[in-house]
């Protein structure tokens, strides 16, 4: 029955009439289910076939406003269906449904051509939003935690939910703009049956032009925020996340230039003060 339920629908959202081996699907369904006085076995199992696809496609639709914006609804649905055929859900929660979407886009670029690089950035960025929303937060690091610390060996820790992204496109601004145009759709797993695909809200904006972009996706009071980072700041933060000492992280981030060090000191001090205010540093586990 699972093969019947998970088989992709037709373009008009109906169960396919022909089975993969050429037999009529009705011959397969008749072996599994009984007909009644109103519905054939095909029609009865089609209810489940449609509900499965409506639910998983709706979930991805909610999670990927940026990808939808770039591809348009029809092309996005083709991508989503092909993705779910190759990588059906392996998690008890729909929250994890987009976790392998970037991998799929890399493996199957024909679904996103000619915007594959942009779509890859969007898949990474939109998955980061999911992760930031409900990943753990640890107790905040405070100035008191610096007491007795050896500056040469000091290692800082970043909040587990903080996501640091290096992107080829400014997709943070793009997604914000798309979401501004759409009504915010809220996630909710419940036990009811979807009766149809949600009617689409097509938001088409000019696609962003390539521009190397460094972004932190973080949260405050339960709300997700995006913060642009200076390339050096990004390098420092990723080095801290990789477990480098503060001294090593700074040496990775600050370019060996002839610029006066005083400028860098003020800049770095400002970054760290800001990151502390945002609660990005936490105590070690």
């Amino acid at each position: 029955m699972w093969r019947v339920v998970s088989r992709p629908l037709t373009g008009t959202h109906r169960m396919q009439r022909t089975w993969s081996d050429g037999r009529p699907t009705s011959a397969i369904t008749a072996q599994i289910a009984k007909a009644n006085d109103r519905l054939t076995s095909f029609e009865r199992l089609e209810i489940y076939n449609r509900m499965y696809w409506f639910r998983v496609l709706d979930s991805l639709y909610d999670d990927c406003p940026g990808l939808r914006g770039v591809l348009g609804d029809r092309k996005f649905m083709r991508l989503a269906e092909a993705y779910l055929v190759k990588y059906p859900s392996r998690s008890f929660t729909l929250r994890n449904l987009p976790s392998r979407l970037a991998k799929f886009i890399r493996e199957e670029p024909q679904f996103t051509h000619p915007h594959t690089a942009l779509c890859l950035d969007l898949a990474h960025f939109e998955w980061a939003r999911v992760e930031v929303f409900d990943t753990a937060a640890r107790p905040l690091f405070t100035v008191d935690d610096l007491l007795d610390a050896d500056p040469a060996k000091l290692r800082l820790n970043l909040q587990p939910y903080l996501q640091l992204l290096q992107l080829d496109y400014p997709v943070d601004d793009y997604v914000l703009e798309v979401k501004k145009r759409e009504a915010e759709l809220l996630r909710g797993d419940a036990s009811n049956a979807p009766s149809e695909l949600r009617s689409s809200v097509t938001v088409r904006l000019a696609r962003p032009r390539p521009a190397r972009t460094f972004v932190a996706v973080h949260r405050m009071a339960g709300t997700i925020y995006f913060k642009r980072l200076d390339p050096a700041a990004y390098k420092i933060l990723t080095a801290i996340r990789a477990g480098k000492t503060l001294e090593q992280a700074l040496s990775v981030g600050v370019p060996r230039a002839k610029q006066p060090r005083a400028d860098w000191a003020a800049k770095i001090q400002g970054w760290f003060a800001n990151w502390m205010e945002l609660g990005w540093f936490c105590r070690a586990e």
Partner: peptide, 14 residues
């Protein structure tokens, strides 16, 4: 719905 709260942090648990 249990599955909506089987997460490690963030707004759902708050």
């Amino acid at each position: 719905i249990s599955e909506n709260f089987l997460v490690d942090g963030g707004r759902p648990l708050d």
